[in-house]
Amino acid sequence: MIRHDPLMLRVSRIESLSPTLRRIILKSADNEPLPVAGPGAHLSLTLASPKKVYRNSYSVVSFSGDHYELIVRRVEDSRGGSAFVHENLKEGDLLPSTVPLNLFPIQVGSRKRLLIGGGIGVTPLLSFAKVLQENGDRFEMHQFVREDEKAVFENLVQGVGSKNIHIHTRRPKEGEIQALLEEQPLGTSIYMCGPDGLMAAVDEAAETLGWPENHVHREVFGAAGGKPFKAKLAKSGCELEVGENQSLLEAIEEAGVPINSLCRGGACGACMTSLLEGDPEHRDHFLNNEEKDSGKLIMPCVSRAKSAQLVLDI
């Protein structure tokens, strides 16, 4: 059955793995079957704290037909969503979620997969390791964690039952990543998830060694939203607030101003609108570079603003 957003989920179990890690088990709240989450998929949860509504994306560690498993780290300087999960979320709570979206899938055609994770970046890699192990595919996983969390991570990977998973209780040493990549057979693909510094080190090593770009994959969450901004509609005289989880097109539609749309993904050109003022952040595939640089046109289904306000000619 094709299910659309939002999916209504119920927190079925919360388990504390460490002072900063919680395992969350989510089940269907309406008895409808859950859509499948393939390896690498994530859910974007709507977390309504009393102060603010957060929309946070979390990798699905495992999916077993009737539930999704997430692991959420409490991050000091997070946007607040993970703090909410740790402090306020209770078993039985309802959580609206997107249908699982996968922008970090396992691709076919690799001789071997090298999985490199740092900290909570383990979550998508766990879903990979399980599937690769089950299918008998060749892989090697390196997970970098803090000394005091060694036991927690060893427990997490134990379930996979593979000898190819290595936990390191430190940051990678100078040259260590490059040495790791050097010993891989031709045709190996990298899948990485972790702190920016770790992923930059992997990118750099891969580039130095001349790895093809399309053999290096990193976790991406959907970039549908962004910073909120204002939009002024010159002809209809409306002023809109475009929220961080809302597209400009949705905001225009919500205000009842007529606008064409078709694909809603920046490809067809139906919603193209003249821009009078403001600095757009183009995210579409319809306008060519010259049109984008001119700053006179925008595709409101996907594009947003770099400036605080855009003025549109509708």
């Binding site: 699982p100 067809c268 595939h285």
Partner: peptide
């Protein structure tokens, strides 16, 4: 007229649960 470049970019981003 670049129809296929645009269509490919769109389809690479096609999402589960949102067929077209």
């Amino acid at each position: 007229i670049n129809v296929f470049d645009r269509a490919l970019q769109y389809l690479l981003r096609l999402q589960y649960g949102n067929p077209v």
